[in-house]
């Protein structure tokens, strides 16, 4: 399933969709950046509640397919610009991380 297709799900909105055709391959949940860099796989959707410039750097380096900000967290204008520049897909979910993961589980499998 692509990031674009994932956006058909209720509760998810696109904050920055730079590469909607990217395939989603699995999910990783975490807020501590070094855990994400050590454990997330390339292509994973990364669910987090952190929203700062370092999250964008990690998303790019770890090569995740998209960042999903749980709990309705959003990006500031400045971060939105940075996400666009870096070509990172960023979505926002109105649900907590667990509910968001359940939503993805239903669609990915």
């Amino acid at each position: 399933m692509t990031v674009h297709e994932l956006l058909q799900l209720p509760d998810l909105t696109a904050l920055c969709l730079e590469d909607g055709e990217r395939e989603i391959d699995g999910v990783y949940i975490g807020d501590l950046l070094s855990w994400v860099m050590g454990r997330a796989q390339s292509g994973n959707a990364w669910i987090t509640i952190m929203s700062n410039i370092n999250v964008l750097a990690v998303a790019s380096l770890a090569d995740v397919s998209c960042v999903i900000l749980a709990e309705g967290v959003t990006l500031s204008e400045e971060l939105l610009t940075a996400a666009k520049e870096k070509g990172i897909n960023v979505l926002s979910s109105s649900k907590p991380a667990y509910e968001t993961a359940r939503l993805l589980f239903g669609s990915l499998s």
Partner: peptide, 15 residues
């Protein structure tokens, strides 16, 4: 509070 400090950086570098 920025998301660092898990003590995983050096282990990741090795890995």
């Amino acid at each position: 509070s920025l998301g660092f400090g898990a003590g995983m950086g050096l282990p990741n570098m090795k890995r």
